[in-house]
Design a protein around this nucleic acid. Structure first.
Lengths: 152, 152
DNA sequence: TACTATATTGAGAATCATTTACAATATGAT
DNA sequence: ATCATATTGTAAATGATTCTCAATATAGTA
């Protein structure tokens, strides 16, 4: 069985909640997608496979997946919150180009040591890290030309 | 004159926009606040000083301040977007306790080297960094007791 | 397996932050 | 001072997200 289902089931149990059919559909779809998604996209994709789902339930389930640590908020796009699954998908840094919208992802690991030290100093127990860098990707960056027409 | 006003004015000029009275009020208030704020809080604070402002204008001006690099999105709280001014306020890491809501801030500097290296590899020109860590602060962390009643 | 207490669901209505339309006004350049 | 254009306030519109409620599904227990 999928490990993520196991995690979700355990989370639900602990909260006295039930692992229902709609929640299964949502969970599976979330882990079949490897892109960012918003509530309605998720709903549409499930809807194309079955009728046993409603948008309200999708909205109700997302917070559970967040709490269970299976999904994280990715960003906000066109007025909608977007998410991505986490499990089996190590934390990464988002690099977003403000010009062409390109989205790159890199590993967060090299930053852990420095972060861990700060966490220790603060006596803070980290559970979730969100790091995004906005700027210009190599295509949109007037390369090496530091001092002119750097128009917005 | 305040440097931030200068920056805003230049930004507006470049875009063919005007530095109006309401925009001045908004700009000044943003830099008088040293906490996170949402659109309505900002509006209320300005409103307590003058009537020459409307909520719509606040909403219309925030994107300009973001574009001008004077303000950055901080987080989303109670269904509202929250922002903070940037200028003269070095980038920092947000540590948010998921239990009591405490918000700590630390310096981002120690992470720069690792980030800069990745940026170089990607040929990405960073302009804006947003790093937030969610977890438990020392008050809410059942210290050193890893395996019991870790109730939500 | 049937029963039961309780959590969950779908549908649609309700919320409420954010945007927008539009007529009146302010701004900056000439 | 004049002008072309950007901006504003007001009120209405939009649209994502949440909530209400009656009907249903779930998991534990007998």
């Amino acid at each position: 069985m999928e490990e993520y289902a196991d995690i979700f089931r355990k989370y639900l149990d602990k909260q006295g909640l039930k692992f229902t059919q709609p929640r299964r559909y949502i969970l599976d779809e979330v882990f079949q997608m490897h892109t960012h998604f918003n509530a309605e996209e998720l709903y549409d994709r499930i809807r194309s496979k079955t009728n046993e789902i409603s948008l309200a339930t999708v909205y109700r389930t997302i917070p559970l997946l967040l709490e269970a640590g299976l999904v994280q908020r990715a960003d906000r796009s066109e007025g909608r919150e977007r998410y991505e699954h986490i499990f089996g998908h190590p934390k990464h840094i988002h690099w977003v180009c403000r010009n062409c919208g390109a989205l790159l992802e890199t590993d967060l690991n090299t930053l852990y040591p420095a972060l861990a030290k700060q966490a220790k100093d603060l006596k803070f127990k980290p559970e979730d890290i969100e790091l995004s860098v906005k700027g210009l990707c190599w295509k949109c960056n007037p390369n090496e030309n530091e001092n002119q027409s750097d128009e917005k």
